[in-house]
Write a protein that binds this DNA or RNA. Structure first.
Lengths: 329, 329
DNA sequence: GTTTGCGATGTAAACGGTTACAATCCGTAA
DNA sequence: TTACGGATTGTAACCGTTTACATCGCAAAC
């Protein structure tokens, strides 16, 4: 197999210097129309395209960014993070970035120490450790946090409006007349868990309602179902449940069914995330929609701004949520 | 900010040549214990680590591979492809590959033409076009197909045992005494759709049962529900439904409930993929499990073998499926 | 005491672009 | 006509490694 054509081949064939060929590709406006065309023709004929490695070497920049997911769960790319990933992918492609994807654990060992240098920017998803952030920043890597915040650092965070989302869910229930609203909460990343929890408490208080019927559960359906069973078998049964994600809501629905409760007549349920399971459940689940793709896109946009030195951006970018009303309330 | 240390800095500090430093890092066995230690100490002191770009340039290999998802759907990284992606990620990290992720459309325009050269291997997921494969192979890029097959090419395919999976599902129904088994099928990638369809037909025939009650639907719950409604309102109602994925099974369950049918008493349902929704449904859905992570890992392993020139591997790697029995049958 | 051979190390030329600087061209104003 | 200046283009150094080849030292074999 003949090795790939180089800029020298193009230079020779088109009769101009390599510098001009280079300019024709990276600064077309600096080479005369006529010459440029000659270059392009030669390149076309040779199937030449600039070698990105060599270019990165000479330019001292790689246009490579990474999406690092910091999670210890079994499935790293769940629907939520996958959605963000899609947004990042799409936006990265349009911005001619190359996107590396990895999990944080493997990364910290293999890569942060060994290769971080050729990554220009990192998007950290999940529960990033402060140590990782400072390590990266100290090496001159631009960092954007997604769905997380961190104090004490000078960095950009892209988050969904968790409090607003909880408000949409809870007010929806309150406006339908519910007074005894319980919450079943799972342990997500610290940031998310805290936001959803405090938001629930604050909003209930705002309406003068008690926010003391709160259960915790593990992140699996059985645990959620158990928690819901216990909750619903109290003497003072709540008329509505706010579940901090859709899986927990699904568990709640199962528990209700086992206890012979009708949804939404006997019990209203609202979920969070508006994942793909919502329309599959019976009844279809009302849930708070988060625009994951958009979050991913925003991450890339802000990372780009950071890399271009335009860091006069807002430090915290908040994306509104949207209540998707279905039949479970 | 001081620019990163280079091999020259290490060379100077440790008092050996750059060649020796280089060897100390990439061929430790070719440098004497004593020297090696001096080099490592100097590197440590300077926080030096080899610049992968320069290394790629000199070595003429990049250790970069890509996972390309060929799909036109709205959500590219659904649970299935995300699972594969996780496996690839993990395996790639262990093999010190850098992993790029992208969708095929953007790719074909931006990358295949412009940058394919510095990617050494590609894993193609979904419905890859033959054109893309030949384009890549003609540029000397190693290609592995996942969950797809393609004739006329000399390439490695990693697939789950679709026929075996269908057999597990259908035989499970048959052994429970079902005779009138209907199928509701969605339009996935051509390969998957065809496999599941023909497998169903063949296996039913094998048991002397008619396989003529087959419905098609779009890939959304409503469409699946509609299809199931029509199916279940026939005068000769089937006693079991084989759904070609879990979402369709969910639609079937919804339809059954609307018609007042009990599951599994009046209707048995089996899904496919064993996605995370199975335990959330009521009743919990029996489904055919596919080990996506493992498929991803296998892709990387075979890609690696390909890159190392050991291509005496089986051309088609098939991964067994496993029936996860729950309550819907 | 030479020669031989091998392991450890050094020298310097790639790898394929970019870009500072110099040189040239060409139109315009003095 | 000539000097001037911006637009184009060419020359060559450089980006940070790897690696073919040369060199060196030293022990075994003669």
């Amino acid at each position: 197999m003949p090795s790939n054509p180089t800029i020298y081949d193009v230079s020779r064939l088109s009769g101009v210097s390599t510098a001009t060929v280079s300019r024709a590709f990276s600064n077309p406006e600096h080479v005369k129309e006529h010459t440029r065309r000659k270059v392009y023709e030669a390149a076309e004929a040779l199937h030449y395209s600039p070698n990105a490695i060599a270019r990165a070497m000479a330019r001292q920049r790689t246009d490579k960014i990474a999406y690092l997911i910091c999670k210890k769960d079994a499935t790293v790319l769940d629907e939520f993070y996958a959605g963000i990933c899609e947004g990042i992918m799409q936006s990265a492609n349009h911005s001619e970035f190359q996107l590396l994807v990895s999990t944080a654990e493997d990364w910290l060992h293999n890569v942060s120490t060994a290769q971080a240098k050729q990554i220009e920017g990192v998007i950290l998803g999940g529960d990033a450790k402060a140590e990782l952030v400072s390590e990266l920043q100290s090496r001159g890597v631009a960092v954007v946090l997604v769905n997380n915040r961190m104090s004490g650092f000078d960095l950009t965070c892209v988050v969904s409006d968790e409090r607003g989302g909880v408000r949409q869910a809870v007010e929806h229930l309150i406006f339908r007349g519910h007074r005894h609203i319980a919450m079943i909460a799972g342990q997500f990343s610290p940031y998310i868990s805290r936001e959803r929890y405090t938001a629930f408490r604050d909003i209930m208080k705002e309406y003068g309602l008690p926010a003391d019927d709160i259960r915790l559960c593990e992140l699996n359906v059985e645990s959620a179902t158990q928690a819901a069973m216990a909750l619903l078998q109290q003497e003072q049964r709540p008329t509505a449940v706010f579940a901090t994600n859709d899986m927990i809501a699904a568990g709640t629905i199962k528990a209700a069914r086992r206890l012979g409760l009708q949804i939404p007549e006997d019990l209203a349920v609202v979920g969070f995330d508006d994942s793909s399971i919502c329309p599959m459940l019976e009844p279809e689940l009302t849930s708070v929609h988060i625009n994951c793709r958009r979050m991913g896109e925003l991450c890339v946009e802000h990372l780009k701004a950071l890399l271009d030195g335009k860091s006069d951006f807002p430090r915290v970018v908040t994306l509104p949520t949207e209540l998707r009303i279905r039949r479970s309330v």
